[in-house]
Amino acid sequence: MYRFHVPTIDISPWVGPGPDHARAAVVAAVDHACRTVGFMQIVGHGIPNVVIDDLEAGIDEFFALPLEVKKQYVRPAGENRGYTPPKSESLSYSLGVDPVTRMNDFFEAFNVGTSWREYPGTAATAADYAENTWPDAVPPFRSAVEEYFVEARRVARTLTQIFAAALRVPEDFFDALTDHSIDVLRMNNYALPPGSIELGAELTGMGEHTDFGLVTVLWADQVAGLQVLGLDGSWNDVMPADGALLVNIGDVAARLTNDKWLSTLHRVKPPVIDGTIERRRSAAFFHDGNADAVVDVLPHFVTREAPALYEPVTVAQHIAAKLAGSRAGRKNLTAVREAARVTASHG
C-alpha cells in the first residue's frame, strides 16, 4: 500500500569529511528520495542558526513596510528580481494550466540573485543575470540576505556533488552545468492585512507548480500550507522538521534523468484559522544551472523501452517559458507532461 513520506537525511558526511560508508549511505538515501517523492528534509547542512535568525529578521522588517513603499522595488517580470505584490502571479500558468481565477496567487515576494558581473569571462549577460535591487528603506536587509545566500548556495552545491554520485556521472559533471548558475533567492510572505482579500474556496497561496531548475533549498516556518502531490494523486501536507531545510529537485533534474527523478508538483494553500490567514514565511534558494547550458537526457537513462521524453533545451529557454506563464499570464504550452499531472490531481 502506497504511503506518502518525505524522508529526513543527514548530509553532514558530505558537508565535512566523513567516512566512505557514511557518504555512500547519504547518496543512496538521496537517490531513493528523488525517485520516489522528489522532496527530502535535510539536516546536518551546517548553516549557523544566527544566519537564519538574521534572515528571518530581515524578511520581517521588509514585508512590514507599507505596500506603497514595497511597490517602489517592483521590477519588470522577466528580470526575476525585486518585489512581487500579492495577486500579480499565477504559477499554474507556468505549467499551461488555467488557475481558478487569473493571477490569483496571494503571496508577496522579494527576489535577489546572481548578477552577470559575478561571472566574468563567461557567457552571462544582464538578460539572464539581472542586477539586484536592494531596499534602502531596510538597511540591514541586504547584509542578512547576502549572508544567507552564500550559505544556501554552498548547500545546493553540496547536493549536486551527492547527485553526481547518485547518477553515476563524473564527480565534476555538474560543474559544467552550474559554474555560472542562475541562482535566485525568493523570500515569500503569505499574509495580508484583514479585509484586503476575500476568504473563500478560490483563494490560492501559491498555485500548483514544479520548480524550474536543478535543485531548490527551502527554509520555511513550521506553519501549515505547503502541499506536495503524491504518486497516488493525493495532496499531502509537508512542514519542515526541527532544524531541517526542505529540498526538492526541479525540472532540470527530471529532464537529465528522463523522469526517473521526480520534479514534483507542489502548492501552498492558505492556512485559514477563524476567518484569518495565519502568517507563513519562506525563503527558497533556486540553483537552476547556467543560462546557456543545454539540458538533455543522460544517455544511460534512455533505452529502447524508455525513449527520451524531452528534447534538448537550454536552461534560459526553459525558464523563460515558465516565467512567461507565471508572471505574464501566458500559458506555457511546452509543459505538456506537467499539465497532465495537475489535471489528473484535480480529478
Rank of each mutant, 00 (worst) to 15 (best):
D136G: 05
D136A: 08
P139Y: 03
R142Y: 02
S143D: 12
A144I: 12
A144L: 08
E146T: 10
E147Y: 14
A152S: 10
R153F: 15
R154L: 08
R154A: 10
R154T: 13
V155Y: 02
V155T: 10
V155H: 03
A156N: 07
T158R: 14
T160Y: 05
T160G: 08
Q161P: 14
I162P: 14
I162E: 04
F163M: 06
A164S: 11
A166Q: 08
L167A: 09
R168Q: 14
V169D: 03
P170F: 04
P170A: 01
D175S: 09
T178A: 13
D179G: 11
S181E: 04
I182K: 06
I182N: 07
V184T: 04
N188G: 11
Y190G: 00
L192W: 12
L192F: 10
P193T: 12
S196P: 13
I197Y: 13
E202W: 13
E208L: 10
G213I: 00
L214E: 04
L214S: 03
V215C: 02
A220F: 07
D221Q: 08
D221P: 06
V223Q: 08
G225F: 02
Q227Y: 01
V228C: 03
G230C: 05
L231N: 15
L231M: 10
L231W: 08
L231S: 14
